[in-house]
Design a binder for these strands. Structure first.
Lengths: 329, 329
DNA sequence: CCTACTTATGTAACCGGTTACACATAAAAT
DNA sequence: ATTTTATGTGTAACCGGTTACATAAGTAGG
């Protein structure tokens, strides 16, 4: 692998000149520049980022910390982040925390050791000491923090929308699935839905769950119909749980949406492919990722004041697990 | 951020000694070691990976190149890779290529510039010049290459299994969906299924597709039933397409699996949550990721000769889009 | 004609680790 | 008692970029 010194020698100039050509700063004569560029080409030279990072004390890497890329919601976030940071010349160091504090800490350390210029984290416990003595730009994604800028969807409003949707469409015995207690956005949705249900003239019950994993979603679906067989409307904590419930309901021979309405949360790509297709509250995951990345990049470039909180709107995606409602009611 | 020199000064030793303590090599007195460790603790020192990488000419990073993390098959691969490399102390630099040669090349360059110690790529065009002048260990995942070790599932056998399954369960007018021509494993499956169908006493037709994206899957599902309304068995190119077809079939009022059997490929997590749940050919994605990582790590450590090709078995996952068959036929 | 500024280029220090080599002492071998 | 060998520690070069500073020539202004 050729170094800048090789190029310098070959082109008959000093390393400083090569560096100037490379970074397009300082004065370089037209002829010299041409010669250097030609030599770079010829030697197939590409600068060593590591050496550069060492001197500059910063790399062109950004750390992205997710709970679990295997959960279909996160790849979309990740893709949004990636597309945006790439455009600005950055690359991603990726980590899955599995919501474990140790793994999280390990990754944060890796990020620092590798001189990342910023971190985007979609992790719980946002205010844990983990993030307190970091002097890097940090943006929380799909989470909120008092101490760091955050990008998230309006979960409360989402919960309200979901509840309103079922109520408006005639469900009267609603079951509200409460997602894991430690997952912030799950609780926001829950609170929003709870508030709306409380205001309305419907019966409802709450079913607590502890994770989002596929396997367990099936268990909860079964539990739901054992505990609340008479329910005629379910607000799921996310689309995976929603689809699991749909599956179980069909297995039990329930007619959807006539006997039972179901509404999910997230709008993961596969939701539109369930049958009946799942009505859901959409979070603009890809856009959220992009916004977080944009925000982080602004922080990295120290552009003016940055918005501390970016809340993106959620929307009701009406598909076929909820009944149609007359527009003019 | 404290440096090794700060630690050395504080502990009253030389940087060499601190380095020896850090890396646990060379001779260090018991007392000295204790003092150094205590100082490291007190200063909250953690070594700068970038400086280390520069001297060693290798980092602790591994490059992972995927077509698109948004496709539900790949997060599983990625997770397998991550879990395995983490255990060996490596971290991941992630890139999505979107199957575009330019992006791919850009990422490979990033990987090299950042001194990654190895690359795992799940990219087509494995034998493109891209990978020819790399003097790093490269493992192809879910793809094969003549020049580099590869980890992949037995796609041909998968195709045969899928075809056999439908034939054995009584489909006689089968439609075989041919995945994108440039995606190697899709073609393997296709060839396998084709071979099996050709041998059997069934009618069949082939429908070509050009991508795996969600949106387009719906289009092909519609196209399928327009062109071949009488089909009673579909071999989908992957689970997403399979689920899209299932969705469309149900929308058209077809009874599954009585009127129409469907078999997918991959066994993505959501396949078991479709209704009826999707029968499919399972690829052990997580394990494939792990195997690829293990292989790469062995190459990095230059342990003995390495297996050039690791083929993992596929298996038929019989769920409810195929009919039950008597065991003793 | 002299000063001041612009343009062009080179030298060497620096970033923060790692390690070859030198040196010193103590213990073991001859 | 002398030579080896094992143990413990320090000095400085090195990895490959970037950049502060020095030097020099050309040219614009007074």
């Amino acid at each position: 692998m050729a170094t800048i010194r090789d190029v310098a020698k070959e082109a008959g100039v000093s390393v400083a000149t090569v560096s100037r050509v490379l970074n397009d700063n300082g004065y370089v004569g037209v002829e010299t520049r041409k010669r250097v560029l030609e030599t770079i080409e010829r030697l197939n030279y590409s600068p060593n980022e590591v050496a550069r990072s060492l001197y500059k004390r910063k790399s062109r890497l950004i750390g992205l910390l997710l709970p679990d890329i295997t959960n279909p919601f996160f790849p979309q976030l990740a893709r949004g982040v990636e597309d945006e940071v790439n455009q600005a010349g950055f690359r991603l160091l990726l980590g899955n925390s599995d919501e474990e504090a140790t793994k999280e800490l390990d990754y944060i350390q890796t990020f620092e050791q590798n001189h990342v210029v910023g971190i985007i984290s979609a992790t719980n416990n946002t205010d844990r000491e983990n993030y307190e003595n970091i002097d890097l730009p940090v943006v929380f994604l799909d989470r909120t923090s008092k101490h760091h800028p955050s990008v998230f969807a309006d979960g409360r409003e989402g919960g309200r929308l979901a509840a309103r949707a079922l109520i408006d469409r005639g469900s009267t015995k609603i079951t509200l699935i409460k997602g894991p207690a430690h997952v912030q956005p799950a609780q926001d949705r829950f609170q929003g839905a709870l508030a709306e249900l409380s205001k309305a003239a419907v019966d409802f019950s709450v079913l607590g769950t502890t994770s989002y994993a596929f396997e367990e979603a099936k268990t909860w679906a079964e539990e739901l119909f054992t505990k609340h067989p008479e329910t005629d409307g379910v607000i799921a904590s996310n689309d995976i749980v929603g689809i699991a419930i749909l599956h179980e309901a069909l297995r039990l021979g329930k007619s959807i949406p006539d006997e039972l309405q179901i509404i999910g949360f997230d709008d993961i790509p596969l939701s539109s492919l369930s049958y009946p297709s799942l009505s859901t509250i959409r979070q603009p995951a890809y856009e959220m990722g992009k916004e977080a990345a944009k925000l982080l990049i602004r922080m990295i470039k120290k552009e003016q004041e940055i918005d501390q909180m970016i809340q993106l709107p959620v929307s009701l995606i009406e598909r076929n697990t909820t009944r149609k409602v007359d527009k003019d009611e």
